[in-house]
Every structure is written in C-alpha cells, then in structure tokens.
Amino acid sequence: MKGRALPSILLAFGVVYVWFAYGITLDPWSAAEPVNSRTLPIAYGSILILLSTFLLVRGMRVHVPRHNLLRLTSISASIIGFGLLLPRVGVWPALILLLVSCLMIMGEKRWHIFILAPLLASLGGWLLIEILLGVYVEPGTFWS
C-alpha cells in the first residue's frame, strides 16, 4: 500500500508555514540584514515542501494499527480533561483524576490499584515538590 495521506499533510504544513513566513513583520533594521526574520523560515518551509513532494510522488508505507484507536482517543480526552481541570482544581487533584481515568481506560480492574495508586502518587508528588522542595504550585481557582 502506498500511503499518500501523510506526505500530503506534510506538504500542506509546509505550504501554510511558508505562507505565514511571508507574513512575518520585519523590524526597520531588517532592510540591512542579508538574512532577516523571514529568510530561514521560508528556506526551511521550502525544503519541507520539496522533500514532501518527493515523498508524495514516491509514496510511503504507513501502518497505523486501527484496532485500538478508541483507547487512544479516550486517553487524549482524559488529557484534555486534565488540561481543563488543572487551572481550576490545581495540579495534584487533577493528576489523581488523570491517573484514575487512564488506568480505567487501560483496563485496570483492581479498585485498590486504580484508586490508591493515583492518590498515593499525587500525595507523594505534593509532599516532595511543594513541602520538601518548597516549589510554589498554583493551587487552582476553585480553592480561592
């Protein structure tokens, strides 16, 4: 099977990147610069366009295992959830939820593992980072 999807995406990325590279604002001093803020981005983008065109013509073999994309999607969703909760409840509670949901998605059934392990990990992290090392971590808007 000759995959063309990925090379096409790369090509599109290159084109969009070069398009934006032409839109970079130049400061007044750039006029005197042989290599200004746009030069290298345009060069890199053009190389990518060239190479991905070559790959597109030649085709490449891609094998993404399809059977477990559901699991990948659920994990991505829990990461998004983590990112959304983080500023609200703080990193440690959010970390517990992330771990619990990932453990469940991965099929961990023993409740003492998927409840206790995240709790202990979070507690340990908090003790180590905030108490022992004295790093200040935002507590989250929910608590204030």
Binding site: L95, I105, M106, A117, I129
Partner: peptide
C-alpha cells in the same frame, strides 16, 4: 496497564512543573 498511565502523568507533570 499501570506503566502507561504513569508515564503519561509523569511527563505531563514534568512539563507543567
């Protein structure tokens, strides 16, 4: 089953901190 969730959490925490 256990390693993957922890690797994910570990790397996220590392970046966030």
């Amino acid at each position: 089953k256990i390693l993957i969730p922890f690797v994910i959490a570990f790397s996220m925490l590392g970046v966030y901190l």
